[in-house]
């Protein structure tokens, strides 16, 4: 914290800015979170645990983790491939490609579910063929995976593209000139450089995959204990006026996400400690 005076702000300005930022985060992020936890624990820890322990809730937790376990790796591979192609090479239409990758962010969750119904629903393009072969996509796990992959599609790529653009390709080019093959370059040069960004992208992707509600709601069919994910189970409990149960499951989701994010922060912190002075 010993910088030349004129490249940082006065302590007072700093404090004012910190207070402003914290106040904003407090009102917009922390308060809603507190509402969720206080509603969940309104009647104490007992009802909270009971709500999380019902067979339906457990089935929803399992399904949510399964969906995330399938969709996140798929988007991770895609994200790495897309960032490699986009940042290491020059080709026309790159902006268009990036925009197309961004597109799922801007598509309403209502629509992101609907598109898969239009494709694979009984009245959809592939519906009759699927029915004839007794394959189920919509209102089953594959449909939920598809909708989740669509929703979380941009996360890893979006995290990696700016990072890899910033890092350039000199390191990789040097490695190639030293005789490394593509996989070796990626494994020993690129991956160490991007691992935090990658981990972070995967965590965000995972958080969003577990929390997605709108799109999944369209393709799930809401069958209790079978196709209900955690967010859908929250809605069901809420609609049953079981507010404690609804917020209990919701807070569990928030906890899952927070734990992974805090874990990432701690990892990063330890990494920083080992590398003080050797930062980029």
């Amino acid at each position: 914290m010993s910088r030349p005076r004129s490249t940082t702000e006065g302590r007072l300005t700093q404090i004012v800015l910190i207070v402003l930022a914290l106040a904003f985060l407090g009102v917009f992020l922390l308060l809603p979170l507190i509402v969720v936890f206080s509603e969940a624990l309104k009647q104490g820890l007992g009802p909270f645990l009971d709500a999380v322990h019902t067979p339906d809730a457990l089935a929803a937790i399992k399904l949510t983790l399964l969906i995330a376990a399938i969709s996140v790796p798929l988007n991770m591979v895609f994200g790495v491939a897309a960032s490699w192609a986009i940042t290491k090479f020059h080709f026309p239409g790159k902006s268009l490609l990036i925009t197309l990758i961004d597109l799922p962010f801007s598509v309403s969750p209502v629509v992101s579910g609907l598109i898969f119904v239009l494709l694979f629903g009984a009245q959809g393009w592939f519906g009759p063929w699927l029915a004839a072969h007794d394959l189920k996509i919509i209102f089953a796990v594959p449909g939920i995976v598809l909708a989740t992959v669509f929703i979380t599609f941009p996360f890893v790529a979006r995290e990696l593209i700016p990072l890899m653009m910033e890092q350039g390709k000199d390191d990789e080019e040097a490695a190639v000139s030293l005789g490394a093959n593509g996989w070796q370059v990626f494994r020993h040069v690129t991956l160490p450089n991007i691992r935090w960004g990658l981990l972070y992208g995967v965590l965000l992707c995972n958080a969003r995959a577990m929390g997605e509600f709108g799109a999944v709601s369209v393709v799930s069919g809401h069958i209790r204990g079978l196709t209900n994910t955690m967010p859908l189970h929250v809605e069901i409990l809420y609609n049953e006026y079981d507010f404690v149960g609804a917020f209990a499951v919701a807070s569990l989701l928030a906890l899952l996400a927070l734990v992974t994010l805090v874990a990432k922060t701690i990892l990063e912190w330890r990494f920083d400690l080992h590398h003080t002075g050797a930062g980029h």
């Binding site: 985060l25 809603p32 709108g214 929250v234 989701l253 927070l258 994010l261």
Partner: peptide
């Protein structure tokens, strides 16, 4: 600071319906 940094990503993780209910309750 680090905890707050993690908190920033919360909106990605909280199901949107839960966010809506919590905000309405507020």
């Amino acid at each position: 600071k680090r905890v707050i940094s993690a908190l920033v990503d919360l909106p990605f993780a909280l199901p949107t319906a839960v966010a809506g209910i919590a905000l309405t309750a507020l």
